[in-house]
Amino acid sequence: MTRQDLGNATTTMYAEGAELVIERTFDAPREQVWAVMTSPEHIPQWWGPHGTTTDVVEMDVRPGGRWRWVNLFDGGRAPFTGEYLEVVPPQRFVRTSIFDIEPFNTGPGAIETATFDEVEGGTKVTYHTRFPAQEAIDAALAQGMSKGALEQFDRLADLLTGTSRPR
């Protein structure tokens, strides 16, 4: 599968199939980075694009706990919701993420996995998002497709990340 590099000097970002990985090292201790990414009082300070604010409606950071954050921007709001699946402070959390606007939320949502590693210069956060379309590839594998068929499907996966054009 084609890997597409999208990052810059400070951030490593790449897409592979329907997965997106962002790696960034923050100049702060791991406990602190964990805290600002998992405490409701910190989220409005950084989550969302520049010039927006975020309302933390619900945030229960433990397995099975729900979260609902609403990004507020000029002229609209973008609610995201999901469930924490795994919480291992200060190392890792896994959660589902759904863009909660009818009818976007009819889809299965993405799985986000954040990993926090102590490295030279601070804390490296690896944020891995697996988009639902990846399941299509998994399903194909489970069906025991031939190698040629898999290559075809890789082409399809590349379309998902815009690395190639059909026909």
Binding site: T10, T11, M13, L20, I22, R24, F26, D27, A28, Q32, V33, V36, M37, H42, Q45, W46, W47, G48, P49, H50, N71, V125, Y127, T129
Partner: peptide
Amino acid sequence: RFLGQSFDRLDDYL
């Protein structure tokens, strides 16, 4: 883009 900008802001915030 959403996540990339969030991480820029997170860096500033930290």
